[in-house]
Amino acid sequence: MARARNRIAGVISVFGELLITAGLVLGLFVAYSLWWTNVLADRAAGRDGNQVRDNWAAQGPGALDTKDGIGFLHVPAMGDDEILVKKGTDSETLNNGVAGYYTAPIKSALPQDKQGNFTLAAHRDGHGAKFHNIHKLKSGDPIVFESKDTWFVYKVYKTLPETTKYNVDVLQPVPKESGKKQPGRYITLTTCTPMYTSDYRYIVWGELSRTEKVDANRTPPAELR
């Protein structure tokens, strides 16, 4: 009887040790996913962002796009960090701590286009988590895109806190789901929701309010001061 109890106690002890080990492994994985990937992504985005600004300083007037990124997104309601914007929304691009503009399933317009929808995606958690605070955006809040020679100032007019990940209509040139019916110059931010999942998508729509030329000192518009 005592021997059987000892065997049971031994099994329980081994099982407990396995649970502790599994918990430690899980904790390390969470730390990697939610902290270390942010560190690596921010480093990569910082290098690429510096390269973009170096290119701007070295080049005369020219095309908006560059191989390193097209400019920087500034969203005061989400925080003070500038967000480098690159082409594409694949994981290889977004995992480097940037926002990417869509090339598919519906091709994004670019800010300088006379009309269309500038559609962007970024991670909400891990890999830089650039859209982590997207839920803080409210109607009237500014979203500013900085290119080499122009500030594009958008104002939020509608949010959609949850929609299916398959809802590509939010990316249409005229985002009718946001209430718009006529062509204009729109911006759409998309990311995963709820936090720490990828089950649904959170959407924010804005409309171009005005543009400002970048001066020699790159003085930001009033919305960023």
Rank of each mutant, 00 (worst) to 15 (best):
M1N: 05
M1A: 12
A4F: 10
A4D: 09
N6V: 07
I8Q: 09
I8H: 12
A9K: 12
S13D: 04
V14M: 13
V14E: 02
F15N: 00
F15A: 13
L18S: 03
I20L: 09
I20N: 01
T21A: 14
A22Y: 11
V25D: 06
G27C: 09
G27K: 10
F29M: 14
V30E: 12
A31H: 06
S33Y: 13
S33G: 06
L34V: 11
W35C: 11
W36V: 15
T37N: 13
T37A: 07
A41N: 05
R43T: 04
A44L: 14
A44F: 05
A44S: 08
A45D: 04
G46C: 06
D48E: 13
D48S: 15
R53W: 09
D54E: 15
N55K: 12
N55T: 07
W56R: 07
D65S: 10
T66K: 09
K67E: 07
G69W: 05
F72N: 04
F72T: 10
L73K: 04
L73G: 08
H74T: 02
V75L: 00
V75E: 03
P76F: 01
D80T: 14
I83M: 15
K86T: 08
K86V: 08
T89R: 07
S91E: 03
E92K: 08
N95V: 01
N95P: 02
N96D: 07
G100A: 10
Y102W: 07
S108A: 08
S108Q: 03
S108P: 10
D113S: 05
K114E: 12
G116Y: 09
N117H: 12
N117L: 10
T119D: 15
T119W: 03
A121W: 11
A121T: 14
A121R: 10
H123P: 09
H123A: 00
G126R: 11
G126V: 03
K130A: 13
F131H: 14
H135D: 15
H135M: 11
K136Q: 09
K136W: 00
D141E: 02
P142E: 02
I143H: 00
D149M: 03
F152V: 02
Y154A: 03
E162V: 06
K165I: 07
Y166K: 10
V168Y: 06
V168N: 10
D169R: 13
V170T: 15
Q172K: 15
P173S: 11
K176F: 01
S178H: 13
K180H: 14
R185Y: 09
I187P: 08
I187M: 10
I187Y: 13
I187D: 13
T188V: 11
T188I: 08
T188L: 11
L189T: 05
T191V: 08
C192A: 03
S198T: 11
S198R: 06
D199N: 01
Y200T: 01
R201N: 12
R201T: 04
I203T: 05
W205Q: 14
W205T: 04
E207D: 07
E207N: 00
E207K: 08
L208P: 01
S209H: 04
S209Y: 06
A216C: 02
P220L: 04
P221Q: 01
P221F: 00
E223A: 05
L224I: 00
L224A: 01
